[in-house]
Design a protein around this nucleic acid. Sequence first.
DNA 1: GACGGAAGGC
DNA 2: GCCTTCCGTC
Length: 210
Amino acid sequence: MHRSCLAEGVPTNAGNSWISGLAFPDWACKAESSPGSRQIQLWHFILELLQKEEFRHIIAWQQGECGEFVIKDPEEVARLWGRRKCKPQMNYDKLSRALRYYYNKKILHKTKGKRFTYKFNLSKLIVVNCPLWGVRAMPAPTWFWPTLMPVGVQSKLLHCMLLAHWATAEQLARQWALRGPPEASEDKKGSSSSVYRFISNSPTSVITLG
DNA sequence: GACGGAAGGC
DNA sequence: GCCTTCCGTC
């Protein structure tokens, strides 16, 4: 993998990634896993930054708002993005233009009235198998997991599911702090496909659910 | 600051 | 396709 201009301090994909004490496997953060592109996508990079404690002073999840985040230091985020893409002239004006292209794609939308605040679109994301939302684990409906699913579609679905999990990771961490992870509780029994199971398993095993 | 059109690169 | 760059508009 050549990233000669990758600067120190810029998040990479080496090893597992963490958010609020939850481990994400390598594949979850692989820039190269982005469908249709061999290069990292901006929204993926944003998620990388949001995952890491060390960048919390420049970009962070908005408390109490699932999927919403605030860019606290726009020029610094742009600088990091520019380093990652080997575009030293990158600035927030250009980065924000790229973010605005996500509006039509329903990946992001702007939180009106709040400066530098955006929100990942979670409205269409998967709510199944999320204990926090009171949805007991159930087999994924057939419309969601078709028997024959193109690789690209699988990847997109996984990205969507990841987003959903990221958005609830804070709450999960709090729950786990009180009750311990599902593997230590009775929740793991039966056909329950908990969030923990999704996170810890390989994408292949996730795909075969249902 | 935020938006979106246009052109262009890869 | 996904930006990057530039720019006019609000």
